[in-house]
Amino acid sequence: MNLPQALSDLWAYWLLIALMMVGLYIVIARDNLIKKVMGLNIFQAAAILFYVTMAKVAGGTAPIVPHDPAHPGGHGGHEVVYSNPLPHVLMLTAIVVGVATTALALALAVRIHGDYGTSEEDEAVAYDAEHG
């Protein structure tokens, strides 16, 4: 597969890898703790999108069996193509994990602000160097 084709066919993957790197870059490059948490969130969101992307089936709908009054309990004779529901379910759990992580990180950031009087990592490091 050559590059233009890879770009057009797998655009969703390129997009979420870019998103992931944006998140990681923020975590590494920003000194503000709140911004770090936001970077971590973007990073996690990209991983969630990865699962959602792979669950997509071309032309698929939501995984709900349509109700046909003529054939109660059946599909009404026609095939239904739907997206894979399993990764979506997994991502519900991953989102909960992400929320818990964010809440804990923010609580720690509040504590750090109370102890150091700042939310900037470099200032906190300087404070530690000064006060031990």
Binding site: K36, T101, A105, L108, D115
Partner: peptide, 11 residues
């Protein structure tokens, strides 16, 4: 510094 270490550990 325990809280700062915990934050770093979390990241």
């Amino acid at each position: 510094r325990a809280v700062m270490s915990a934050f770093y550990y979390l990241v």
